[in-house]
Design a protein around this nucleic acid. Structure first.
Length: 532
RNA sequence: GAGGGCGUAGCUCAGUCGGUAGAGCAGCGGACUUUUAAUCCGCGGGUCCGGGGUUCGAGUCCCCGCGCCCUCACCA
């Protein structure tokens, strides 16, 4: 039988180490040392991996429990016979971040998800074998400390340990204690190290969780029902994106992972749900960059008898309420009703309290390009000047190309709704009754990012079918494998879908904006990394 | 997909003109019961991302590859 300490090489945390493990029998000296310390703990009867504990409190709670009066009384009369020590006692657990061994008095700084706290372990006051456990602790170990709260002579709240127990050995040498883990690649690949070594990483994900909770609460309060629709689909519809394909053995069929929940959510309106939403993980088999990950989250919202106008109000209110959550998280207090809600992103101070800008597609185009999108001659001239092919190309397709410049002209610091797209560019959107050339659609741009997209949904099955077929006509052969008409969806429309507003918001992008991170990887716990 | 940058000790980083591979922290041995990035004395630690080339000699120059980051194009 193999001794536990000769066990298989676990991944101990660095690329160099990982590589060394695979072809060298000898472990790195620092790891060997940690294993040796673990063995010494066992020899003393300590379990380096701990046990269930009850009654632990967080480091922040422990610090908050400090009682100056009780501490002062102890300083004055602690040595008097019969003195009753009333300094609060707490038990905490955390990772050892700093270790100062003064011989018979050991200082350590523990860290948990609420912060750091100093613990003192004195040979005189700590029950055996706690002092030895402290002696054998390495940076990165998780330990449990129980003791009374006091202040050192320099005024730092400290837990004076009466008891120390190991809770988990850290066999991997931890990152530098002050710099933290700086290597971006390692931070993403080993998020479990990044999170405790860099508290700001932990903060982003706690804030992300709060924002998603707030998003749900916002929609719930407005009467939207959260639903779950299939991720594995026999047809990948709802967005013009390349899907991931997989295979189901039992039925011997190919399945697609969803690129959007849209077509299922609309079926629910047909079924009679008045307001639905889904926080949907979507999968798109496309490129990766700082705002795209192959799997990403979107919230899609549908409101029977709504329109793109109701969706616009909803979007603006939603972002405003999320901005409040961020500010409350940062400042520890709710911002007042009239207060600006300024969050910084990419060097821009964006005020979410101020009403968002609204501009029509046509007006924005004209403002940026200097002529109207209906001016066929000028559109073609401008397109040619930019090296685009123009012969036989529909004017509006050229307009769409030129519109990039219009988008770029939007003030990045001002959240801006671009509304009323040319109808031919949005075949699946309902046109204005008063002007069939205009589609009731908006996109929201903030800091140059497209954050939301909404429509007054098309609910005439014959028009929908005609547009589906028209769209399908112009696609490349390779796309035909996954772009087929969802006949059942058309059937649902024939059953009758109420007029509705529909909205999609990129959740990860919203989190980026609201938390001030310019890379989607910073707001995804485990972004996709190429395997090494 | 195109262009640019980066990859050196466990971590954070230096490394000049091509000439014996460095620092701080971490680690090891020792001292120390109020430290605060503890301090003091002593010691060990390298596949310079991988492969090839040029050269008497390559961490450094050239080529190929891998990974990550940035910019641009496309998808949200």
């Amino acid at each position: 039988m193999r001794r536990r300490d000769d066990g298989p090489a676990v991944d101990l945390g660095t690329r160099h180490y990982h590589r060394a493990m695979s072809d060298a029998p000898a472990l790195h000296e620092q790891v060997l040392q940690r294993r040796a310390n673990r063995q010494r703990m066992r020899a003393l009867g300590l379990d380096p991996y701990g046990q269930r504990e009850t009654g632990l409190c967080s480091l922040a709670e422990a610090k908050g429990a400090y009682d100056p009066g009780a501490d002062e009384a102890y300083q004055k009369e602690g040595k008097t016979p019969g003195f009753a020590d009333r300094r609060p006692e707490r038990a905490v657990a955390g990772r050892v971040m700093l270790l100062r061994d003064n011989g018979k008095l050991i200082w350590m700084n523990l860290r948990d998800h609420t912060g750091d706290m100093q613990v003192a372990v004195s040979a005189r006051d700590c029950a055996s074998p706690g002092f030895d456990a402290a002696k054998l602790s390495d940076l990165g170990d998780i330990i449990i400390a129980r003791g009374r709260l006091m202040k050192t002579k320099t005024g730092e709240i400290t837990l004076w340990a009466g008891e120390i127990r190991p809770a988990s050995k850290c066999l991997a040498p931890p990152p530098a204690k002050h710099e933290g883990l700086q290597d971006v690649e390692l931070r993403y690949r080993q998020r479990y190290v990044d999170m405790w070594a860099n508290p700001e990483t932990m903060d982003v994900f706690f804030l992300r969780a709060k924002l998603i909770t707030a998003l749900r609460r916002f929609l719930d309060e407005r009467g939207f029902v959260e639903v779950d629709t299939p991720v594995l689909q026999t047809l990948a519809g709802g967005a013009a994106a390349r899907p991931f394909v997989t295979h189901m053995n039992a039925l011997d069929i190919d399945l697609f992972m969803r690129v959007a929940p849209e077509l299922f959510l609309k079926r629910l309106l047909v079924g009679g749900m008045p307001r639905v939403y889904e926080v949907a993980r979507n999968f798109r088999n496309e490129g990766v960059d700082r705002s795209h990950n192959p799997e990403f989250s979107m919230v899609e919202v549908y409101e029977a008898f709504g329109s793109y106008d109701t969706m616009r109000e909803l979007t603006e209110s939603l972002l405003r309420s999320l901005a409040r959550v961020v500010i409350a998280h940062r400042t520890g207090r709710e911002p007042g009703a009239a207060e600006p809600l300024v969050l910084e992103f990419g060097g821009h101070a964006i005020d979410y309290a101020r009403p968002f800008d609204v501009v029509t597609y046509g007006a924005l185009f004209e403002r940026a390009l200097g002529f109207g999108l209906g001016d066929d001659g000028k559109v073609r001239e401008a397109a040619r000047a930019r090296g685009l092919k123009t012969e036989g190309v529909d004017r509006l397709l050229l307009v769409q190309e030129l519109f990039d410049e219009a988008e770029a002209s939007i003030d990045p610091a001002r959240p801006t709704f671009v509304i009323d797209y040319p109808a031919p560019l949005c075949p699946l959107t309902r046109s204005k009754t008063s002007d069939p050339s205009v589609a009731e659609r908006f996109e929201l741009f903030i800091a140059g990012m497209e954050l939301a997209n909404a429509y007054t949904e098309l609910n005439d099955p014959d028009i929908q079918e005609a547009k589906f077929r028209e769209q399908l006509g112009g696609i490349k052969d390779e796309e035909k494998t996954f772009r087929t008409i969802d006949e059942d969806f058309l059937n649902a429309l024939r059953v009758g879908m109420p007029p509705a507003g529909g909205l999609g918001v990129g959740v990860d992008r919203a989190i980026m904006l609201l938390t001030g991170n310019s890379s989607i990887r910073e707001v995804l716990l485990f972004p996709l990394m190429r395997p090494r």
